[in-house]
Amino acid sequence: MELRIMSGKLILMGFIIYSYIQSEAVNLSWLVFCLLVYFCVNLAIAIFKKGMAKKVLIILSIMISAVSFLEVHSLFILLLPLNLYECAENMPRSKWAMLVVSVIPVFFIGGHIAAVYGLTAAFHFLLFLMAEHDAARIEKLENHIDQTRKDMQTLSKTLHENEEYIRQSEYTFKLEERSRLSQEIHDKIGHSMTGALIQLEAAKRLLHTDKEKASELLQNAINISKDGIEKIRLTLKNIKPPPEQMGIHRLKLLLDECAARHQIPISFVHYGDLDAISHIQWKIIFENITESLTNTMKYAKATHVSIEIHVLNTLIKTEVKDNGKGQEKIKKGMGIIGMEERAASVNGQVIVDGSNGFSVNTLLPKHE
């Protein structure tokens, strides 16, 4: 805003100088002096944004314009409106009053100067309104930016707190699981092992005096040990997640992360009994899908990727297909060769097709 107002003042000062040269007046030194004083005072007005000092300087500038108008050159009156409008800055109700005040000199100055003054007052009033509107808009945008920055800081802090909460929750869940596992081993297995140990100690004492009783105690210890071993097996079986859960959940997590990172939809469906897929087969499927997605994101320029897992009677088929540009002549790089080697390690194979988009099919034999 200050830049526009100062530019308007400089234009008027240039006009005054030009008019003075054309009029061939003789008091040049006073003209230069008044212009320099006026320029310095108004430069100070631009430096002081707000406060009493700025108001005092504006009044001083008005006085300079008035005195110069009376004593030096009549065109100095053109500088008056802008200073009057500056008095009404940040005072919405005073703007129109200042416009009325700035028009009053028209009735006291005669000749062509009155017309020029009227046009100048009207033009600079519009200039002042535009500058004030832009200043208000800039201030609003700055406030919006500040608020956005604060919101981002708040969100960042909240995100950090949520991440910390998740880490603490995971750690707590691990501790609870360890505590539960420890208690379960103590309750189900500890008592069995203690009972077997007591039976063995008793059999040891009766071994030379009552062999029949010692034999009975040894058999009891064997039965208790078998029961304990079975409880250990059942406990570990219940703790260990089935391979299909580990594989499918890990795969879904990979697909969600890839879709979010690259902003591309990835559809996933599966058919058949996933229990038939072993750990090593899940590992191959996961790594081949990862390699296929990597190639798609780098080269295919696709907008959609579909992934299907079919568990058939004799084989397990995994297909990764995109709707990208495809490739008629396929050159097998390290990625495709690596997928083929992984599949071949369990007597499987990989089939790639680039005629309609790009698809990678991994075929693995189903183990009975």
Rank of each mutant, 00 (worst) to 15 (best):
H304A: 08
Q219R: 13
T294Q: 11
I266M: 11
A302K: 01
F286Y: 09
I264Y: 10
A302W: 01
Y299S: 12
Q183F: 13
T235I: 04
I264M: 15
H186N: 14
I232H: 08
K237L: 15
G190R: 00
N288A: 01
E308P: 02
L234Y: 09
M246H: 01
H191P: 02
I232P: 11
A259V: 00
Q263V: 00
E287P: 09
A221H: 08
K226R: 10
I239A: 11
M193Y: 07
A214K: 05
H208D: 13
E184G: 06
H270I: 02
E308L: 10
E244I: 00
K204I: 05
A276T: 15
D227I: 07
E184I: 11
M246A: 13
H279T: 11
Y299P: 06
V269C: 00
H191R: 03
R233M: 15
L274E: 01
Q199F: 06
M246W: 02
I307T: 00
N295K: 08
E257P: 08
K226D: 14
P242A: 15
Q219E: 13
I229E: 11
R233P: 14
P241D: 07
S292H: 01
R261C: 08
L255Y: 10
A203N: 00
L236M: 10
I280T: 14
L254W: 07
A259T: 03
I185V: 01
N220A: 13
N220E: 10
T194L: 12
I289S: 11
S278D: 05
K213S: 14
